[in-house]
Amino acid sequence: MRAITVYKTSIASVQPTAKKNGGVAMKRIATTVGLALALSSSAALAAESSEAINNAAAKVAVNLCSSCHGPAGNSISPTFPKLAGQQKMYLSAQLRALKDKSRSDPEAHDYMWGIAATLDEALVDGLAGYYSSQTPATGKPGDPALIAQGKHLFENGDDSRKITACVSCHGANAEGNTIFPRLAGQHAAYVVRQLQVIQTNLRKSSVMHGLITELKLTDMKAVAEFLQSK
């Protein structure tokens, strides 16, 4: 975000000069060269700035986020979600929701509001980029019967209970897509907890609310077991 701001500011400062001196050839050339220089320097600044943000984000991830979310976002405790390989748009949207406190489930309040408040916009995007580019750990084997039950629900939903197939948004391999989170490999206990807080409106999710009203705890546990195994 910071990089884009620099770029826009540079163009705005050059354009009025070009219009004002439009009739004079030399000045046009000079303006063109100036514009080109300004653009290239903006691009360089943007690249440099982008690298700086990535470095800053990596530093925060390594020194702070890793204390709960584990190395490269592969957390150990199921209280904290795995972030490795998570969708970038989902991550930045969640960080912003935690920052402006519109995500208000108990764990968001207890653990993340304070941390997210310390992140500026550039870091939010930088961290989203950092975690989305990390390699997720392989899934954890679980109860085969439960996994099969969860797989069926994930892929087919249940029309009789108006439960939409998860696969339609979260992808065939639960890899997620844009604002729909990756669920593959996620801690089962975390998935169950999120389904519970969304179902009980403790966590806002306009898409999910209507789709899981009939989901029972046994369904949640099955689908979570399946996702954790992927």
Binding site: H109, D110, W113, G114, T118
Partner: peptide, 10 residues
């Protein structure tokens, strides 16, 4: 808790 913005249970 005020410093981190986190709850006691963290």
């Amino acid at each position: 808790a005020r410093q981190t913005g986190q709850a006691c249970v963290a």
